[in-house]
Design a protein around this nucleic acid. Structure first.
Lengths: 390, 390
DNA sequence: GTTGATAATTCAAGTCATTTGAGTTAATGC
DNA sequence: GCATTAACTCAAATGACTTGAATTATCAAC
């Protein structure tokens, strides 16, 4: 989890850094832009933007895209983010395997890899991860000098005291500073986050949340996670554990249970197991769904019921532009849930002037969190830092 | 509702503004500080801080507080925020009355006033509010040249489409830009917010949230509101309606009802009315509580039950440092609820290393939101702006 | 008590990114 | 064609912060 940046003053150097990030972010967002347009957006002089663009172009982060004429006047030279200008490594550590993905600046997947893990202690994980970084650099040699950093997704909470009796699934990680360990082993800037947060940002870099600044993301992992993005930045909470929506109580006819006991991959696995069926992976679930399996259908009904509740809570607490549903589920099931959720009437999101659907499907599949890990890094590069007040 | 600031670049002028706010905020937070200490906190040179402090002192915003010796070396000259360096006007508009309060820089109440309102249309309200501003300036002439602005708390949502069939209680305010109207009438910088948000900031300026940066605030108004502060800044949501926790569904034995039907002032009034008792104001409630009224006791039990649920949701979604309970209720009842809420076990806030209670009582009483309105202005002065990403 | 170490503060000069203003280039539209 | 509009560049100016040397005042050790 990234620690909150302490309050900082501003000086020329930090202004420069901020402005470069802001320019990159604007161009990434718009796809292609001219100097004057950027200057207007950021309330900077065109000269300042010119200087920044010259820098970024020299660094290979931007490329010229010809001139574009819009009415009178000299047509503006357009700039776009160079996809190969930089790369980000995403690493997802699970108890039994490590996943890696290399993304370019446009969020496109350059390479992915999976390695089994027989031992999830820090030493073994760090060795594996280092080897995967090397493999990625071999596969894409141009990324060697242009690697922005690595994003790590691990089961949390870690590094801090968590809920009594819960904690990371990974042995030997409770008392260590994961960020520092990875930084030392990989010799890269590191972002550490949980799966839901990472996946939420992945949608923003190259997914359903492009162009959104304030949205919520439900992530189907083993449990149910929530990524909250406000003003383009992740909300971490005071101790880095915001978004544990799976824990909130759901009052059903059978009693009060945690939300994720009705709405998660573990929940569907358990439900199917009671019917004597296995549904341990995404492909199986997809087949069961295609076959309109009655047990799966029953689970979907109870999941949609739980989702109604979760949507009502998140909409009224955050007032997001939209809610995205994604994660380790087949796309068909995500689409089904989106289609079959009863959006609450009593919600601040129930507005007559909406332009955005209230609930949409995002990226799905096994790699979602791994791509998200890389997105943690890309987002940092495209979004000016926010300092803590006080 | 304050609109999100569009993304901005940084230059010397904006750096200066940012740094002045940051210095003021640090000093306000610590009470009293020396130049070198501030410089370390903000990662600025002592020279820069010296210049800023000289400016702020000239403007009357800071006062010297002697030297303080901490070990070797030249004792540092201490500075504190000058309480009379600036003032903020808080205005709360209700259907039947307008409340005003003048606060100094330390959040202390200089003056309060109440005026009945026979007509809540914009013209009448603006006339009343302008008269109250003049009265405040007469009561505290030194504030005339030192008024930072006015914060306005009104029933929302307004200025934008709200939930169908709901909207402001005030006639004639649906289609107008309240901020612009007040700015024109009062000739002051204006912050508009809802009661819960405003009260949440009041706790930060001079209350239970001093020193906190990330916390949640349950506000008892007519309904139930939630103020969310993250990193010292209010979360507004995409459309300014974040925090409508009163709307979320609560599943009780009697069926699903909005949370605020169990946990709000209207709810207690209704409950007592069913028993043939009136409990329309805070004093009455306080007396009933002191007399251990059995009907009130019953309501308190159901309210505490609802609060359990709300706490579980807010803790797991936001991971705040603490949750504060405040608003238009007698302090005795707030204290009772704090003492009788079953804090959920399954919560990220259930940590072994807590230094802060999970649920505490904040300011109570009729004026809470009015003071909060002024706090909106004070907080803006003490907290560097945050620009929207994209 | 003297003396040296430590630390806050100031002064004056230097640095750096942005702004300003004049001039150039290349479209549109009458 | 020719005036208008707008993007862009060059060179100089600006402004806030940083740097480095000098000053002041306390603590601690001899």
């Amino acid at each position: 989890m990234r620690h909150a940046v302490p309050q900082q003053g501003s000086n020329a150097e930090r202004s420069r850094h901020h402005n470069r990030q802001a320019v990159l972010g604007q161009i990434h967002h718009a796809g292609t832009m001219g100097r004057a347009e950027i200057a207007r957006m950021l309330s900077l002089s065109t000269q300042a933007v010119s200087n920044i663009i010259a820098d970024l172009t020299d660094d290979g982060m931007l490329i010229e895209k010809g001139r574009r004429s819009v009415g009178r006047g000299l047509p503006a030279v357009q700039y776009a983010v160079n996809p190969n200008g930089a790369f980000a490594l995403g690493i997802e550590v699970r108890p039994d395997a490590v996943f890696a993905a290399l993304l370019d600046m446009q969020g496109r997947v350059v390479m992915t890899e999976r390695k089994s893990l027989s031992d999830a202690h820090p030493d073994a994980v760090l060795r594996t991860v280092t080897a995967m970084r090397d493999a990625a650099m071999t596969a894409q040699p141009s990324a060697r000098k242009r690697l922005l950093g690595a994003g790590i997704v691990m089961p949390g909470p870690f590094g801090r005291t968590g809920i009594a009796g819960r904690g990371t699934d990974l042995p030997g990680w409770q008392q260590v500073d994961a960020r520092a360990l990875f930084a030392a082993a990989l010799e890269l800037p590191i972002e550490v986050g949980n799966d839901a947060n990472a996946a939420a940002l992945a949608e923003r870099i190259a997914g359903a949340a492009q162009g959104l600044t304030t949205y919520a993301y439900f992530y189907f992992g083993a449990g149910l996670g929530l990524g909250l993005v406000s003003g383009g930045r992740l909300l971490h909470g005071a101790f880095g554990n915001a978004g544990e929506i799976g824990h909130i109580p759901l009052r059903t006819a059978q009693g009060t249970v945690p939300l994720e006991s009705a709405l998660s991959r573990l929940s569907v696995q358990r439900h199917m197991a009671q019917a004597g069926k296995t549904a341990d992976d995404i492909e199986t679930l997809d087949h069961l769904y295609a076959a309109t399996d009655p047990d799966l259908t029953a689970w979907l009904a109870s999941a949609a019921f739980a989702l109604d509740h979760a949507v009502a809570i998140v909409e009224n607490l955050f007032d997001p532009q939209t809610i995205i549903l994604g994660g380790a589920m087949p796309a068909t099931i995500l689409d089904h849930l989106v289609a079959h959720t009863n959006l609450p009437t009593l919600s601040v999101a129930n507005r007559s002037d909406r332009t955005q659907a209230r609930l949409i499907a995002g990226a799905s599949g096994r790699m979602t969190a791994t791509l998200g890990a890389a997105a943690l890094v890309l987002n940092r590069t495209l979004t000016p830092e926010i300092a803590q007040a006080y």
